[in-house]
Computed example of a mutant assay.
Amino acid sequence: MPITLTVPEGVFNADTEAKVFAELTDTLLDIEGLQDNAFMVPNVVGTLNVLPRNRIFSGGAAAEAAFVELKLPAVALASPDAKRRFIESATQIVARASSGRIVPERVWVNVVYAADGAWGIGGRGYDNAALGGAIQAAAPAR
Rank of each mutant, 00 (worst) to 15 (best):
G122R: 07
R84L: 13
P140Y: 08
D30K: 15
R124V: 15
F39Y: 05
S98D: 06
L48I: 10
A74E: 12
G60D: 05
A76R: 15
L24N: 06
A130Y: 04
P8C: 02
V7Q: 06
R85L: 13
P42M: 09
N54F: 08
F39G: 03
S98R: 04
D127F: 03
P80W: 08
A22P: 00
D127P: 03
S79I: 07
A97M: 03
I56Q: 12
A118L: 11
A62V: 14
T47V: 12
A90M: 02
V68S: 04
F57R: 00
E64N: 15
T4K: 10
G122W: 09
A138M: 02
V112F: 10
R85G: 06
D81M: 04
G120E: 13
R124D: 11
M40S: 11
Q35S: 15
P80E: 13
E88M: 12
A78I: 12
R84S: 13
A97D: 01
V75S: 14
I31L: 01
F86P: 06
L70G: 03
V7S: 05
A22D: 11
A97Y: 05
N13C: 11
T6P: 00
V107N: 07
P42E: 09
A82N: 07
E64Q: 15
A14G: 00
G33F: 07
S58C: 10
I56N: 12
A66N: 01
V44S: 01
D26W: 08
T91N: 04
I3V: 12
D30Q: 13
E88P: 08
N110Y: 11
A78P: 00
V111N: 07
D30R: 14
R84F: 10
I3E: 01
E9H: 11
R84P: 03
K83A: 13
D26Q: 14
T25M: 06
R101P: 00
A115C: 01
E32V: 09
I31N: 00
P52Q: 14
G132W: 02
W119A: 02
A82Y: 06
A118M: 15
F67V: 14
L28S: 09
